[in-house]
């Protein structure tokens, strides 16, 4: 396994083929996903929509390599992730996935800069390089001036931008955002959505998971999930 990024092979960034995810609850088997297949190309801006209980969170966990499918194949940048163990998945998450959460999930005792540094720590990158890259990432979200602030000294929108800087710092293949505006007011939410659009124009691939239609509208493609299946997949 090489530490250097390899040029993306020709073909889709994500290839999901007949993904099933089954949970066993006592004697009962619950199918959260029932054969989901799709492909996502580099630099796409995709929203995954669906009501609660539709299986969209399960799908997000699979896309984010937090979980593996019970059946089917998930190929990320030409690599089949489906059969990987915990530590291999951690490495893939570290290099390929940039998570943005609804509740920001910043470490409360660490400064903005230290929060952004965190993925670089787990990539084994030395201190000076970490600081330089974290600073560059914070500049990208216009927060370089606030890097020594703790999360509780920042507004909600600023916190989410720190989280986005943290998601971008490793130069991931996918920016995976789970209800990124769910904890923000409308104005701030729009600011964040504007930031996503800019990042997409700059070449990032963005996957947005939401249950809000007007947030999903920002994306260029909406995959609608219901009862563990893709109900619609529309490009706009």
């Amino acid at each position: 396994m090489s530490a250097e990024p390899v040029a993306a092979p020709a073909g889709p960034l994500i290839l999901a083929e007949d993904l099933w995810r089954t949970y066993v609850m006592g004697a009962e088997e619950i199918h959260a996903l029932r054969g989901v297949s799709f492909a996502i190309q580099p630099n796409e801006y995709v929203a995954i929509m669906g009501p609660s209980g539709s299986g969209k969170s399960t799908l997000m966990n699979l896309i984010g390599c937090l979980d593996t499918p019970s059946k089917g194949d998930y190929v990320l940048r030409g690599k089949n992730v489906s059969k990987m163990n915990d530590d291999e998945l951690a490495e893939v998450r570290n290099r390929e996935i940039g998570f943005v959460f609804q509740t920001f999930n910043l470490l409360p005792r660490a400064s903005a800069l230290q929060n952004v540094e965190l993925p670089l720590v787990y990539a084994g990158i030395p201190k000076e390089e970490r600081v330089a890259r974290a600073k560059r990432s914070l500049e990208m979200v216009d927060l370089a001036a606030r890097m020594s602030h703790k999360p509780n000294e920042l507004s909600g929108g600023q916190r989410q931008r720190v989280a986005i800087a943290r998601a971008l710092v490793m130069g991931p293949s996918i920016l995976l955002a789970d209800e990124p505006t769910g904890n923000l007011d409308t104005t701030t939410g729009n600011e964040i959505m504007g930031l996503f659009e800019r990042l997409q124009r700059e070449g990032n691939t963005i996957i947005l998971v939401t249950h809000e239609r007007d947030i999903a509208e920002h994306a260029h493609r909406i995959i609608f999930i219901r009862d563990g299946k893709i109900e619609s997949d529309e490009r706009r």
Binding site: G64, D86, A90, R93, N94, N105, Y122
Partner: peptide
């Protein structure tokens, strides 16, 4: 627990 979850999501392995 949540912090551990975040660290793992960001790429922390078990040994980390």
């Amino acid at each position: 627990t949540r912090e551990i979850g975040v660290r793992k999501a960001l790429g922390a392995k078990r040994r980390d």
